[in-house]
Amino acid sequence: MITITVPAVWSPERRTGYEVAGSGLLYDVVRRFVEENPVFRRRLIGADGAPLKYVNLFVDDELIMRHLRETTEVAPGSTVTIISPMAGG
């Protein structure tokens, strides 16, 4: 199992922890998570069906840079943390 952590404000129940079976490439894990939890689709998947690149993705507390996300493997027992992008000025 892979643990998925999302911001509490994203979930109607304020739930932050979820699980996804298996392992695989990071973007595939995100897609499986959204398939199992469609309430997060608009926050994680674009109109073209691809994961949004501006969302910050961490695997086991390591920020995965955008250019590495398509090739990053997520092992069973890992934690994927999803953090909303921040804007400021």
Rank of each mutant, 00 (worst) to 15 (best):
P12H: 09
I64W: 05
Y27C: 11
R31F: 00
I64D: 09
I4M: 14
R32V: 00
F40Y: 13
L25I: 12
V30T: 10
D48A: 11
I83Q: 12
P38C: 03
A21D: 12
V34I: 06
A8I: 05
I82F: 06
P51I: 04
E62Y: 01
E73F: 08
I64C: 09
V39A: 12
T5E: 15
V74S: 10
V20T: 01
V59K: 07
D60L: 02
Y27W: 13
P76M: 03
I4N: 04
A21V: 01
I45R: 04
T5P: 00
P85S: 13
T72W: 05
S23N: 13
A8H: 09
L52C: 10
K53S: 14
D60S: 02
F58T: 03
L25K: 15
W10V: 01
A50S: 14
V9E: 13
Y54S: 10
A87F: 06
L25R: 15
E19T: 05
A87M: 04
I4K: 00
E13V: 02
R15P: 00
R15N: 08
G46M: 05
D61L: 05
L68M: 13
D60F: 00
F58H: 12
I2S: 01
D48N: 15
R31G: 08
G24D: 08
V80E: 02
P76F: 01
V6G: 03
V20C: 06
G49Y: 10
I83W: 01
D61Q: 13
N56F: 12
W10I: 03
A50I: 06
V29S: 00
G77V: 02
R41A: 13
T16S: 11
P38Y: 02
M1D: 08
V9Q: 09
S11I: 02
G89I: 01
A87P: 04
F58Y: 15
I45H: 05
S78Y: 04
F33K: 05
V6Y: 07
T81C: 06
V39Y: 04
V9A: 12
L44V: 03
T5M: 09
V80Y: 02
A50V: 10
A47V: 09
L25W: 05
G46V: 01
E35H: 07
R42D: 15
N56E: 05
K53R: 15
V34N: 11
R66K: 12
T71E: 14
S23W: 03
S84P: 14
G49V: 07
L44D: 07
N56M: 08
A47Q: 13
P85L: 06
S23P: 00
R69Q: 15
G88C: 08
A50Y: 11
E35M: 04
G49L: 05
G22Y: 04
P7E: 02
D28R: 07
G24H: 05
A47E: 15
S84N: 13
D28Q: 12
M86D: 04
L25A: 14
N37D: 03
T71F: 05
V55W: 10
G77I: 02
E62Q: 12
Y18E: 02
L63E: 04
T71R: 15
E36Q: 14
V6C: 08
P76K: 07
P85R: 05
D61R: 14
L26S: 09
L63P: 10
G49A: 12
M1V: 06
E70A: 15
R15F: 02
R42Q: 13
V9C: 08
